[in-house]
Nucleic acid binder design. Sequence first.
RNA 1: GCCUCUGUGGCGGAAUUGGUAGACGCGCUGGACUCAAAAUCCAGUGAUAGCAAUAUCGUGGGGGUUCGAUUCCCCCCGGGGGUACCA
Length: 955
Amino acid sequence: MEYNFHEIEQKWKRYWAEHHTYRVSNQSDKPKFYVLDMFPYPSGAGLHVGHPLGYIASDIFSRYKRLKGFNVLHPMGFDSFGLPAEQYALDTGIHPAVSTANNIKRYKEQFANIGFCYDWEREVQTSDPAYYRWTQWAVVQMFEHYYDRDANKALPIKQLEQKFEHSGNQNVHAAGGFDKKFTAEAWKQYSHAEKEAVLMHYRLIYRRPISVNWCAALGTVLANDEIKDGLSERGGHPVEKRSMLQWSLRTTAYGERLLNDLDTIDWTESLKTMQRNWIGKSEGAQLFFHLHRRKDNIEVFTTRPDTIFGATFMVLAPEHPLVAQITTNKHQDEIDDYLKYVQSKSEVERMADKKVTGAFTGAYAVNPFTKTKIPIWISEYVLKDYGTGAIMAVPSDDDRDKAFAEKFHLPIIDVVDKSKYPGASLHDKVGIMINSDFLNGMEVPNAIQTMFTRIEALKIGKRRINYKLRDANFSRQRYWGEPFPFIYDKEGITYPVKTSELPVVLPNTDDFKPSSDAKSPLSKCTDWVHLPNGYTRETDTMPAVAGSSWYYLRYMDANNDKSLADKEAIKYWQNVDLYVGGTEHAVSHLLYARFWHKFLHDIDFVPTTEPFQKLINQGMLQGVIESIYLKKEKTNGHHHIYGSKLLLASNANLNDYIKLYVLIDYVTDYGAADSHLNIAGIDKFRKWRPEYNDAIFETIYGTYHLGKFTPKGDVSDVKLVTHSEVGKISKSRYNVINPDDVIAEFGADCFRMYEMFLGPIEQSKPWDVRSISGVSSFLRKFWSLFYDLNTGKYLVNEVEPTKAALKVLHTAIKGITEDIERFSFNTCVSKFMVCVNELKKLNCHNRFILNELVILLAPFAPFTMEELWEKLGHQTTVCDATFPTFDESYLKEDVIMYPISINGKKRGEAHFPTTMQPKEMESLVRDLEVVKKWTEGIPIKKVIIVAGRMVNIVV
RNA sequence: GCCUCUGUGGCGGAAUUGGUAGACGCGCUGGACUCAAAAUCCAGUGAUAGCAAUAUCGUGGGGGUUCGAUUCCCCCCGGGGGUACCA
């Protein structure tokens, strides 16, 4: 019997489908375990080798848990709303629903090839109306709730209205909130529209104007990463900041709980730290600075009120509303120029810029403590959305303020003496106050507290908690997303669509261009927008994070048409036990999902407070990007294309050339140092990029033009050497490697194990198919324990296993169990290899040993193990076997080898009985030849013996 | 810029709590088999010196703690991810 993985894969793929091997029930006596992958966006490029990394890891873990006796939920679905499908529709006219359906079909075929144990009866697609009905339902619930600070949870907005009726908003402590106080009488006098406007300040999803990146030429709002140097990446059109009415989620309401509950979940400390920093809680003072000779004042938030005597100027965000009002005529031009400069930069660029820039408004404020007049500047380093959009600048104790003061020659007053704290940096809150009037001589923490009290006593500000976290902008002017379940009457008052009338189905159209008035393409579906009663629909759609914020709940009861999921199902599955996904989602998706979950918890929909109990991050697989160089200037009407070797040899200025990515299929010796295009490769390239069909290809071996090769010297083939660099695998870099090709050549089990063998799951690493042969020969070697590879003879015997073989087996069981539990799958593969190498050496074909090994390996190589399990005479799937347990007694050794080190450096080895105590060993150690050799003539200072570990002699 | 991860042979990586640096695999070198090649098998393989035994150096760079540091602390350099509308 030969190892034919093609036949084996087809056979078991069919078996699993026919026997519903991966169907999961919501009723079971077994303990539950929920393993979840971050579901993919079904892109047009199909699955590439980087995607399955996490999926294989979670699949192994799911199968392992099942073998360990758990009822395992391991579902898969698609995050199928998104920008790329819409962009593709704009380019090709193909409807996003059509391209998305095709892509999903392709993904599912690819998933099936890899042998994942998903229960496809629970599949979800976020763009399916049966799914987004419940996304809309949750949004309606948010609209009808507010966050009550006293109850510390979301409560129905009806209860808030009752409070208003009863006592106005005097005693209401709510997130967000209306900034003016009103009485019950006043409330009752309000018109319907006025009441609704007030309530909008409390709802958990609410509408407000937000500044967005508006690109008039494209007629759309752009993401920061779609903007390069102030221009749209697509087309290079100008982009401006523009205020638009948008829906927002009141994520800040949950800031405190999102922060505190991190302590209850099992995520890496680094990920929790990222979320903590994103939430960015800080305690400080809200302070008002009066303007000099004007009535207005500037609100700032500072965590260092103690340094106020060093506040020698103020800086406003360029977008701060006061800027226009306070700028003096004399400085108007300067400010306008600066605003123009800032407009051209994205927020990331503004923060990343090391250059110190700014402009003076000509206006002054008064420092409330020193009573001195301080100038008001604007600068890009102050962001409008963080804090109050204005700062009091203390150049002596803040790096950026200091750089700013130095550049613009503003005064610097030292207020903290750090001489007692050597090594303390500028932002450490330590030191003794100086030059600070009544604070002089105090330690910083004490001074901060003193200032809080003083500020509140003087009524110029308040102690306050500030969060960096902002409410999430939830509106998109796009077609391919969930429609909002909101309608407006003629006055513009918002009404949620009745939940019984959900879903609000996305209307069909073939016009995906944004409308001319900065509205989404949906606004052009006039029949859909205008309701018979004169009301109109919201035409923005939701962002992709909407559907992905709660999909893990839908899997628990995916086909329910009465509810988001049945409460009994949620009660059974609780939350996700293990979530596997990339760190690129560290804050956005993971924070929104936590927010959503907490809201559903508040309205009694889910019993748990957190969605994902344990989370591990998978790294990215990187690929090699291959490119050649195009000279920017044509010569004699021809493009010239150069190989990297020739270009480097000629010391050319790279600025004169453009890097052209080459489809890696055309490259010979892909990824190697001398990767290149030969004649066939160049011809394929010319066909692929017809604009370069008549280009002249220059290589160190000669010139190739229109099918004709003019060699330099005695060579027969062109070698257009390509430049190789490690980077992201992506369609735009033409370096996507399809797992199907790898599977066709080496088999799915080999592919699965090789992906794991590449390295630790959480680390990024380059994909290099060349070393896959090691795993391939391992699987054949494993097979050869059952069948002679030459004769096909069945080798398995029924004799008693030897002590040596049992030791090999139990070493493997111990190591692999521990490694799976700590998600170290690469070392599992190594341990399997060591185990098989040892059994080969022992010439072991023992039935008992092999039976256990098949179960052990089944999570990693399910196809082959099903086959061998059957060959061993079992009638049922190996998925329902019992994972072997490890027995210490097989591993006991009589003697232990100790490394003998002199001053920490290993110089020899010695064997001692396992039971021997360090005290007994010492004199024997001193008599060892190695020890005598290295300590000749030098006294031994100390002998360190760690039982079972090592010996170190100190001289 | 800020937050976070990461850096070990020619390559992917191992070393789980501070205790033998380089497991396992690829590649490379030599050998067996073969008319030959592929496949397979066996041996070697961090660098330097040496016939060898062995010695010295060696985990991005610099410093520190320790009997002992890839592992802990401080500073610096390189690479990845995020930075709120890619997913």
